[in-house]
Amino acid sequence: MSQPEPITPGSFDPAAMLAQARRGHIVALGLRYIAHGEDWCEGALDYDRRLVSDPASGILASGPIVSLMDTLAAMSVWIKRGVRSPQATLDLRVDYLRPAKPGATVFGRAECYRLTRRIAFVRGVAHDGDESDPVAHVAGTFMLTDQG
């Protein structure tokens, strides 16, 4: 059985991770860091016409919102563990409550609410300006692949 690696609380910095990213999906989408706490992370996805589901309505496709929330959820686990350890998304359930308003930035907040030796449980909400009127709810799990 492997020993858990030593964890320095707060040593994972989601702002630095996003700022240092030079390529990849989060850069292509233009995901932005907003804030984080001890087990949560907030970020934003600015409106981009390339990401719409239908040119006529200009409504954002749901995929980019999944990418935003998956990214924030992963970061909430690293924040809670204090280290960017290897992990894999096991599953993700998304409820689309309503379409995001065309032109609006989508904000997301994800929280790691339970951590076991092998699994992290996450939940999150996305909104387009008014937290009390969300566009999506997500719930998911990550497998912590550094654990025995």
């Binding site: 989060i26 995929g63 980019p64 999944v66 990418s67 998956d70």
Partner: peptide, 10 residues
């Protein structure tokens, strides 16, 4: 990225 794979599925 898991989000890109989810996007393909949708």
């Amino acid at each position: 990225h898991g989000g890109a794979i989810a996007g393909l599925l949708e």
